[in-house]
Design a protein around this nucleic acid. Structure first.
Ligand SMILES: [Zn+2]
Ligand SMILES: [Zn+2]
Ligand SMILES: [Zn+2]
Ligand SMILES: [Zn+2]
Lengths: 132, 132
DNA sequence: CAATTGATGTAATAACATTACATTTGTTAT
DNA sequence: ATAACAAATGTAATGTTATTACATCAATTG
């Protein structure tokens, strides 16, 4: 699932997200790609759908926005669950994962016989630069 | 912040959410309250804003929907951070909190000098009944 | 009572996402 | 090579979620 085998639209969307220093909404991405022939939201949403599937992009639920994965080659645990610290001021996103957190959440859902499919962890606040 | 001192609109919105067995979108709440004089989304959003502030209602970011708090009288740690297990099939929501998870996330953000304001934890999947 | 504050009513608009349908491109089987 | 199929794309329309702007009303306070 490397960049080689992305389609044209997928590649364009991924490039835009990769270069961005903050999360982008689908419509912001659309605007960035008008010059490359994008005309409709669906072109963005379809590309994003695939990129999410490939694990190359993450959706930030609390922002309705998207970021390129910060750990594309992390082979310790290919994206079991990922967490984000998101700065409300500058938009900077720190992506991380923590097995202890995963294990605790796992233990809880198992105790409830709940079958987890996807877990969202998003910490909103101020990054070190903005909090200073 | 008990139900006594809610305004009329806040009380109506809270009642609807309390009786619901699943999360509700703002527009679904609006429809439920048309008979009580609600006409516009803003009436719902304004009431929700206060109820969220009071800690009587939670917003589910991954659903753009709202639920009444399941632990209104939990005095162990008045809602430091709360987590949700959400069934994708029946919509049932299990609200819980776990200090170990909170501590781990806390440790991470402290190590980054990040100042956390609000943390979202949502586990989507299938409840025991629906997974069977 | 005047002044302030909080809540409400209403309309319009913005922001985010999906459905439907037609067309094109790429792959596989014969 | 070509027929059949699957995947990707183009376009328009529509659906869903949330906010801005402005006027009015009610409660509180000095
Ligand atoms: Zn990632
Ligand atoms: Zn920042
Ligand atoms: Zn709660
Ligand atoms: Zn269920």
């Amino acid at each position: 699932m490397n960049a080689q085998q992305l389609t044209k639209n997928q590649g364009l969307v991924f490039d835009v997200l990769s270069r961005a220093d903050q999360p982008m909404s689908a419509y912001t991405i659309l605007d960035k790609l008008r010059d490359h022939g994008f005309r409709a939201p669906l072109q963005v949403y379809r590309a994003l759908e695939k990129l999410l599937e490939f694990g190359m992009v993450h959706r930030l639920e609390s922002l309705n926005a998207f970021v390129a994965c910060a750990h594309p080659n992390d082979n310790c645990c290919r994206h079991g669950t990922v967490a984000f610290a998101i700065c409300n001021s500058c938009g900077h996103v720190e992506e991380f994962h923590d097995h202890a957190v995963d294990d605790r959440l796992d233990a809880f859902v198992k105790s409830k016989r709940f079958k987890a499919e996807k877990t969202t962890i998003e910490i909103r606040g101020l990054c070190s630069a903005c909090a200073a």
